[in-house]
Design a protein around this nucleic acid. Structure first.
Lengths: 75, 75
DNA sequence: CTTAAATTAAGCATGTATGCCTAAAAGAAT
DNA sequence: ATTCTTTTAGGCATACATGCTTAATTTAAG
C-alpha cells in the first residue's frame, strides 16, 4: 500500500518543520541526533520526508527541540 | 530495541486519548475505523497502546476525530 | 586551494506497523 | 435465554521504520 499524495505532503511538511526548527537553533543534524538519541541517518531521512516516523520518534524529537506536536505536524 | 517504560507510557496515553475522544463522540471503534479508513483491528491496537503508530496514521486519526495533535499526544 | 565539517545517499539486518482474516468474549437489548 | 453489537485477541503476509555502516558530495573555514 503506497503512500498517497496527501500522506507524502504530510511527511514533507513534517521534515521541513523539523529542519526549520533545528536551523533556528543553529543545530547540526548530528547534534539533534545526539540530543534526541536518534541516528543521524534517521534525522536525515525524516527531514527529507523519506520516511513515516513512529509516534515515539515524533515525541522524542519534540522533546529535544522543545516544541509541541502542533508545531511540527501539519493537519 | 524494545520500548522503554517512557515510550510505553507515551503509547498508553495516546491510546487512552483516542478512546476518550471517540467515546465523547459516542462512536464505536468500527465507526472510527470507517471514518479514518483504518482497520478496526488497528484502532483496537492503538487504543490499547499495543503499537507505535506512524505519523500518517496519527494525522488521519486527528482528522477523523477533529482534534489537533496536541490533544492526543502527551509530551 | 586545502582541509575539515556537514549533508546526502545507499545498503543491510532486525523489529514492527498495518491490512486482512477469524473467532472468542463481553455487553446490550429485548 | 436469545440475538445482535461491540470489543478483545490472535495469526499471517507485506511493507517499512530504525539502527548501523560506509562513502560520496556539498559547504564552510582556514
Amino acid at each position: 500500500m503506497p503512500l498517497n499524495p496527501i500522506e507524502i505532503i504530510t511527511l514533507k511538511d513534517f521534515g521541513e518543520n523539523i529542519r526549520r526548527i533545528r536551523l533556528e537553533k543553529q543545530w547540526t543534524m548530528e547534534y539533534l541526533a545526539n540530543q534526541a538519541n536518534v541516528e543521524l541517518s534517521q534525522i536525515y531521512r525524516i527531514e527529507k520526508g523519506k520516511i513515516n516516523p513512529k509516534l515515539t520518534t515524533i515525541v522524542i524529537l519534540c522533546k529535544a527541540l522543545e516544541v509541541n506536536p502542533d508545531q511540527i505536524i501539519s493537519i
